[in-house]
């Protein structure tokens, strides 16, 4: 369960990115965060993974107030959250296997466990045949699938995705959305930021529409 209570966020005194947001996202929900560019979608995601702190309000994840977390506890929060970006954020100097293994290495998991889980995660996204390829040897869709495998390899309870299909064509977008739906079906809460209305129409789920930092609509089509 994610509870966002009266959250406001401003980067500078005169520009407010989020204004008095109150949202409740039950465990296992699939939510689109939508709105025009600059509406505050990415800022809200950053607040959820602890990259920023709100200037006002509280955010609770499973009862834990993450706005009051000490910076040394932020990594522990991020280990429970998988993050997917529009630009994939894969390390081009590492193989696919090494990229996906990254979150598990960070957690200090055993090598055998890492090998097994990474193989399973890559198999799940259909890339188990390209373990030793480097990201630049893959297509955009494959890179995003690898990024999703990396986000899911640690069995996170929440999956955050910031415009994950922004750089991809329709066919690949379908494949990527299937992966998100699959993760959600296995119990992961998915929050997907997008300004693509067609995507919402094709895969209808709960929509949180942001407008200039305010929650304008909260509906399920």
């Amino acid at each position: 369960m994610i509870q966002i209570c009266n959250v406001s966020m401003s980067y500078q005194k005169d520009s407010t990115a989020l204004i008095d947001l109150t949202i409740r996202i039950p465990k296992g929900d699939f939510v689109y965060l939508t709105g025009a560019s600059g509406a505050g979608k990415s800022t809200l995601l950053k607040l959820l993974y602890g990259a920023e702190k709100p200037t006002r309000g509280q955010i609770l994840i499973d009862g834990q107030n993450i706005t009051r977390l000490r910076s040394s506890r932020i990594p522990h929060l991020r280990r429970r959250i998988g993050i997917v970006f529009q630009d994939f954020k894969l390390l081009n100097s590492r193989t696919l296997f090494e990229n996906v293994a990254f979150p598990l290495e960070v957690q200090g998991r055993k090598r055998f466990e890492i090998s097994t889980k990474v193989y399973q995660a890559l198999k799940h996204v259909g890339l188990h045949g390209k373990l030793h390829r480097f990201p630049l040897q893959l297509s955009g869709g494959e890179q995003q699938r690898a990024a999703i495998a990396r986000a899911l390899v640690g069995d996170p309870m929440i999956l955050l995705a910031d415009e994950p299909t922004g750089n991809l064509d329709d066919e690949v977008t379908q494949e990527i959305m299937e992966l998100f739906k699959g993760a959600n079906a296995r119990g992961t809460t998915v929050i997907l930021a997008t300004h693509n209305r067609d995507l919402i129409r094709q895969f209808p789920r709960r929509v949180l529409l942001l407008d200039k930092g305010r929650l304008k609509e909260d509906y399920t089509p």
Binding site: R78, R79, I83, K89, F102, P103, V106, R150
Partner: peptide
């Protein structure tokens, strides 16, 4: 810097 950023995003502690 990319590697450092990603390590932070996937839960790497400051010490790690």
């Amino acid at each position: 810097r990319d590697e450092i950023e990603i390590m932070g995003l996937v839960g790497g502690s400051s010490m790690y």
